[in-house]
Design a protein around this nucleic acid. Structure first.
Lengths: 232, 232
DNA sequence: GTACGTCGTCTGTTATAACAGACTTCAGTC
DNA sequence: GACTGAAGTCTGTTATAACAGACGACGTAC
């Protein structure tokens, strides 16, 4: 007798992982405006599951700081304020600065070359105005650097920081890139890592983060709340 | 009546928060050895609830890095290795250094005084050899400093780092304190914060963290795994 | 004695229903 | 007409049961 179950493709994507990813993407994509509540049952209906996996995903996102708890413990998409942005920026500069520094110390020539390739790819995406693809390439570029630091906890931590940032990054980065800002810092980072200059690498990353934060802060309204530009 | 220590959240009556806290405490207390699996149903039976709240608590602890997933997605208490310790120490130095620096910049005289009081309290606990109480006082001392930085995200992040550390801290700190180590750094931190010297505050905190890490690393076996000293 | 198959039990996973609190709405009373 | 109270509906919370995969024990066949 043969083994009939041998080729069963392991679609072990747990439902709550699917829910987690979908929810995360939806927030990243700005499908839920800041302050909007996310009822479990509606989410479950949207995802086509029961509320159990959704519940878990929401709970995890809350503990990661991506979502917050409102009245009646309902999950809400947090507002991004200038105060939060400043707190986040301060932490990001410190921790991503460390990552860049360590990356420059440990970088192999091959890894530095891969970084340069990625940068060229990003430049091409800017040239062709593929801003949505650029968002992911930009993210990959940064995390490629952080992975080079060889510190898993560091990378993990930075990812949670970026998650908190999620909703704003999406609509900010394309507009930011159109101003042709940030690219200089990216070039400098790659150069510093190539040359093993950790101080320069850290300085370039910090400048990148700080400059972007200043730009984002300029989008705030009188109450310090940051809004997305109106998109038709 | 103010509550300076917002880490104590007794308000929540929700079972999963209770389960979360109990589970965390149990891990902190070293009730589960590294590598031991935590079946949901046993935990639920221990806590006197169904598996639903336990499931959520475990899931949150996993996403915070306190627990890990083993075979069959079972929750396991992670081993602490010298490699992980080094990664963690690097991040802690950077981020808690930032916190100490900012605390020194923003400290009010009253807050600095409260810190000195806490330090005196700790000294008294050492004198009377109340090492289990000292553990909590030590933790409160550090987070009192970090709260003074006025950056909620920073405090939150540091807490997750301490959580990852949890199992080792418990059995390391008392032994460490008996060697009368660390107290000097604590005194220096308070002095620096009193004088508004951010560089000195950061240096003292970094020394504190690094020295403790070196001590902990000395407890590792040949495989780089850190074990608790045998306690009868 | 060894190998293999089967069954029972354990695990996490998911769905569903029952529960409790809060808000809205609508009707009844002053 | 305004206020009050009750019911209905929404919310998150929790328990329970059904499910599927993995692992081990036990028994049978060679």
């Amino acid at each position: 007798m043969d083994k009939p179950n041998e080729l069963v493709k392991l679609e072990s994507e747990r439902l709550w992982d699917q829910a987690f990813e979908q929810l995360k993407s939806a927030i990243y994509a700005g499908r839920f405006g800041p302050g909007s509540v996310l009822p479990l049952r509606s989410l479950a209906e949207t995802f086509g599951t029961s509320i159990t996996p959704v519940r878990d995903a929401v709970s995890r996102l809350v503990s990661l700081g991506v979502l917050e708890r409102g009245a009646r413990n309902a999950a809400i998409v947090p507002f991004v304020t200038t105060a939060k942005l400043e707190s986040l920026t301060q932490v990001r500069c410190e921790i991503e600065g460390l990552a860049a520094r360590e990356a420059a110390r440990h970088a192999t020539p091959e890894a530095a070359e891969g970084l340069a390739d990625q940068l060229a790819h990003m430049k091409e995406l800017i040239r062709t105005e593929s801003f949505d693809t650029y968002l992911e390439a930009h993210r990959a570029f940064h995390f490629q650097i952080y992975a080079m630091a060889g510190n898993p906890i560091l990378s993990e931590l930075i990812e949670t920081l970026w998650l908190r940032f999620g909703p704003v990054l999406t609509f900010v980065v394309p507009a930011y890139v159109k101003l042709l800002k940030g690219t200089d810092h990216h070039i400098q980072v790659v150069g510093a890592i190539r040359g093993g200059d950790s101080a320069a690498a850290e300085a370039a990353i910090v400048s990148d983060i700080r400059e972007a934060a200043d730009y984002i802060a300029s989008l705030a309204d009188g109450g310090g709340v940051i809004h997305a530009p109106v998109t038709p």
